[in-house]
């Protein structure tokens, strides 16, 4: 199905004008995503991963670039024209505490998108669909009339997922869906998302800062740094053979729950991410890189190149 992808992103950019200058939040991101697959987008705060997710759903207007969904260019569509498409493109947010209306019951929360988009008519049919969705996401029927504050984070996140599923979407952008949850609950939600993908054939874009979560979850992983993609590869390849110096540092920085002789040595990178404002025409990672080459890295920001089959890296030093 390689010639018929569900989503194609071409050279997506989003600039914000700030008092200090133009902020390059997303700068030339491209990828394709096939139906039923998961793309993990990883990076640290401020790398543009959430902005990318929001641009794809056109929750914010991209500055330039193309978003092609099911073969149609949706970049220039107006809000009204987007409306029928919204059903197919849904989002699950990070914080199940602030993304749900505290004055609505679980029934109201889950049926709201169904009523709003006129998917099903008749009170009984809507209620039946709501209960079916609750079963799908593993919420017991006794919660149907409770309010979000009566539920723990895991159950609230299940409501968020049910709301997204209510529209029978093709693709769901999950923006840090488990970051606010305890580990044992995190595992429950990750398993649920995985099961739903299997049952419903969903396509996911999984945005997170937690590399261990994307490893478990994704087919392909894209690593972002200061608005650009620095590496993209199948998950197993990326973890076994990271090529970009930033990816290596990022992998090495994960505190592994291993004690004893099997524990790998850690490499800590210096410095911090700075805001991508008024950037020089050079590699954006150069200042933190442990092997910058003068005359190469300071000449232009490198673009993604396919160094091995399906393994793309943006680093001028690598051959």
């Amino acid at each position: 199905m390689a010639n018929n992808p569900l989503l194609v992103i071409e050279n997506l950019t989003k600039y914000f004008n700030t008092a200090a200058g133009q902020l390059h939040a997303v700068d030339g991101v491209s990828f394709t995503l096939e139906e039923g697959k998961t793309l993990g987008i990883v990076g640290e705060s401020g790398c543009g991963k959430s902005t990318t997710g929001r641009c794809i759903l056109k929750l914010i207007e991209p500055t330039s670039g193309k978003i092609i969904f099911q073969g149609n260019d949706i970049t220039k569509l107006s809000r009204r024209e987007m409306r029928p498409l919204r059903q197919k493109m849904q989002m699950v947010f990070q914080d199940p505490f602030s993304s749900l209306d505290p004055r609505q019951t679980v029934m109201q929360l889950i049926s709201e998108p169904i009523i709003e988009h006129n998917l099903i008519k008749g009170k009984e049919a809507i209620e039946a669909r709501t209960l079916e969705l609750m079963r799908t996401v593993g919420l017991a029927e006794r919660y149907v009339n409770v309010y979000p504050h009566e539920l723990d984070g895991g159950r609230r996140q299940r409501i968020g997922i049910a709301r997204a599923l209510a529209m029978n979407p093709k693709i769901i952008v999950c923006d840090e869906p488990v970051s606010a949850l305890d580990v044992s609950i995190q595992a429950q939600i990750l398993n649920l998302l995985k099961q739903l993908q299997k049952d419903l054939g969903l396509t996911y874009i999984f945005i997170t800062h937690d590399l261990s979560v994307v490893k478990y979850f994704s087919d392909d992983i894209a690593v972002m740094y200061m608005g650009t993609m620095v590496e993209k590869a199948p998950a197993s390849v990326l973890f076994k053979n990271p090529l970009h110096p930033y990816t290596k540092a990022l992998l090495s920085a994960i505190p592994l729950p291993i004690v004893g002789k099997d524990k790998p040595k850690r490499q800590v990178i210096k410095g911090e991410i700075t805001a991508p404002i008024n950037l020089p025409d050079a590699c954006r990672f150069m200042k933190r890189c442990d092997c910058p080459v003068a005359g190469v890295c300071d000449k232009g920001n490198p673009v993604l190149r396919e160094l091995e089959p399906n393994h793309f890296v943006a680093c001028s030093c690598l051959k």
Partner: peptide, 23 residues
């Protein structure tokens, strides 16, 4: 044991996690 089983990074890809049931 349950806490360790819930961690994604020890698992190979594709395998289901084993969360602790309940709350």
């Amino acid at each position: 044991e349950g806490l360790f089983n819930s961690l994604p990074n020890l698992k190979e890809q594709g395998e289901m996690l084993e969360p602790i049931k309940g709350l």
